[in-house]
Design a protein around this nucleic acid. Structure first.
Lengths: 148, 148
DNA sequence: CAAATACTATACTTTTATGTATAGTATTTG
DNA sequence: CAAATACTATACATAAAAGTATAGTATTTG
């Protein structure tokens, strides 16, 4: 089970925006330098976040990126979804099928494991906001218990 | 967040052993054919599981692999650990550091997210056994609530 | 005891994810 | 209005994971 590079760096970028209190846009060179990424790579990540509606791009000379809504209203789930597929995504079975048809077709024990696990994690990721993360208060276990 | 191929197929193999009620060893060709994997690839996976003490190898003409202990005593966590690193593993920071030193050295918000998340998931993975999975009863949420 | 059949180890190929380079488009501001 | 500086898109290079091939070692059993 692995966090992808895109998720890792993308989340770091979002935390950068959550921490930036000036309303001014952060430019790509700024993001790049603060996160130690190359400018085009930072651009690629920001494009993903923009596409998901988490940040807005401001073009032109005094442009940059601004966060699209308050950090309190951005769930961790939204961010990770923007940066990659859920780990039991739509293409999971297809991906791990080596014949024309999956050998577990119709009776997939491992599938039901991932589905349960995925739903479970979703509940957590849905509850925790970017603001929680930025403030260092991410009581994940509490997040789930509170719901039930 | 991604399940690696090794984890996916390795877990499937363990489920195969959990479901096999004859005490007889399963040979590599058998595992290979039942899971739709090549023999050497199946061998590679089984070697990992063996190294972790989850299965035992029986060499020789009537050999194969047998499960090392009852499925009730094997936690999902043990299986996933055998097949790869936890997603916030020892080398996480090193891996996602692009300079000589991480730009977040000493003040790593994203790190504390993953640590919390990792511990949280561990609690679940520790509670769910291979037997639970095989029987289709993997009440993950219940597993955590029961603990607290 | 030797042939059959099992597991084991290692080198190699292929695929996929990462990250870079480059050229281009849009908008501001002097 | 044009130069500066921002974002954007796409093709390419590199690194890591996935999977294969092959040769080898260990036991059983006729």
């Amino acid at each position: 089970m692995k966090v992808t590079a895109t998720e890792e760096y993308g989340l770091r970028c979002m935390l950068l925006f959550a921490a930036s209190d000036s309303g001014l846009p952060l430019t790509l060179p700024e993001v790049s330098s603060k996160e130690g990424l190359s400018i085009p790579y930072a651009g690629k990540l920001m494009a993903l976040l923009k596409q998901a509606g988490l940040v807005k791009a401001v073009r032109g000379r005094s442009g940059g990126y601004v966060i699209a809504k308050p950090a309190e209203e951005i769930a961790l789930k939204e961010i990770l979804n923007a940066l990659g597929e859920s780990f039991y995504g739509q293409h999971h079975c297809e991906r791990y099928t080596r014949k024309e048809k999956c050998v577990h077709e119709g009776d997939c024990t491992v599938g039901s494991v991932w589905i349960a696990f995925d739903r479970f994690i979703d509940q957590v990721l849905q509850k925790v906001t970017l603001a929680d993360l930025a403030s260092g208060k991410c009581d994940l276990l509490g997040a789930v218990e509170a719901k039930q």
